[in-house]
């Protein structure tokens, strides 16, 4: 059960392999990977800056997990989110969850993603060839 926020690239293949092996007795291991898109509304994205208020992001993620784990029975999880300067195709967020059955795992992934969209303090700025723009919630 780990939360990791880092500037280094997310090496998801190795992380998933280790997680699945560690949770060998779980009936279900589900993962989600979010990546930087190559364009937004036909504008080519050169890079993406992701800013974090780390202390609050960690605090709010733990708060979200405390609430969620009262409702959803899972056996293990790993939450990774990158910040800093990213290029299209690079990994932003990686979630992996182990549970006895798949239903709980899917609910967990969906709920955590909603928390990241609404409460966890990260902000994205897309840098285009000639300008840049902070994304709003609808982007």
């Amino acid at each position: 059960m780990k939360i990791i926020f880092q500037t280094e690239k997310l090496n998801v293949e190795e992380v998933l392999k280790n997680f699945a092996s560690k949770n060998n007795s779980s009936g279900s291991v589900i993962s989600f990977l979010g990546k930087v898109r190559p364009s937004n509304k036909k504008k080519k994205i050169k890079t993406m800056d992701i800013e974090i208020y780390e202390k609050m992001a960690l605090y709010q993620t733990k708060l979200a997990l405390k609430r969620l784990l009262k409702e959803v029975k899972i056996q293990d999880y790993l939450i990774m989110h990158r910040y800093g300067n990213l290029k299209p195709g690079e990994n932003i967020i990686f979630l992996v969850v182990a549970s006895e059955h798949r239903k709980e795992g899917f609910i967990f992934i969906q709920e955590i993603l909603l928390y990241f969209k609404k409460k966890i303090t990260f902000w994205k700025r897309e840098n285009y060839l000639d300008s840049s723009k902070w994304l709003d919630r609808q982007s």
């Binding site: 992701i50 969209k117 966890i120 994205k124 919630r137």
Partner: peptide
């Protein structure tokens, strides 16, 4: 205290 726009993570 912190001031910021709505978050856009995930």
């Amino acid at each position: 205290i912190a001031f910021f726009p709505p978050v856009t993570g995930g």
